[in-house]
């Protein structure tokens, strides 16, 4: 009963695939997010049981890390670097233009579910800022034209 929800079979597979690892929780959470686009609430008791942790502990870990989502993101995820080196190249102004064009703030998704906007603190592209990541693809010397990549 505990394990019967729409994702439970896939999660069981993921848990099985990570057996024997030392400290398996982060790899498991990454794999679940990869599979579902977020870490479903219903996964928590299943993970807790498999790793003999309390549900509260699993929750605590999920909520500690910026990467793990409790709900699916928009169709596209646009991450803009907010860190110092990119700021010196005008990252703040680019971010303001993009927020205005999308009509959303950081951590929000456009009402049509098209784009989720997230800050990131450095992508290691600090000599060609401002930098961005669009659905996992890296963009250097980014400006508001990056929006063309998330137009659909």
């Amino acid at each position: 009963m505990l394990d019967s929800h729409p994702h439970s079979d896939r999660i069981a597979e993921i848990l099985e695939a990570h057996r024997g690892l030392e400290g398996p929780l982060l790899p498991i959470l990454h794999a679940i997010q990869e599979a579902f686009g977020h870490v479903p609430e219903a996964a928590v008791p299943q993970i807790a049981k498999a790793l003999t942790m309390s549900k509260a502990e699993v929750h605590g870990v999920i909520s500690f890390y910026h990467d793990f989502r409790k709900a699916p993101a928009g169709r596209h995820v646009l991450k803009l670097c907010r860190a110092e080196a990119c700021q010196t190249m005008g990252a703040d102004a680019v971010a303001e233009q993009i927020k205005k064009a999308l009509g959303i703030d950081w951590h929000e998704t456009t009402p049509d579910g098209r784009v989720t906007l997230e800050p990131v603190f450095c992508l290691g592209l600090c000599a060609c800022g401002p930098s961005a990541m669009v659905d996992g693809r890296l963009v250097g010397r980014c400006d508001e034209s990056v929006l063309a990549e998330v137009a659909k």
């Binding site: 982060l26 959470l29 500690f64 890390y65 990467d67 603190f121």
Partner: peptide
């Protein structure tokens, strides 16, 4: 050795 991936916490 193994590669492990962080989760966005500085």
């Amino acid at each position: 050795m193994e590669i492990r991936v962080g989760a966005g916490a500085y």
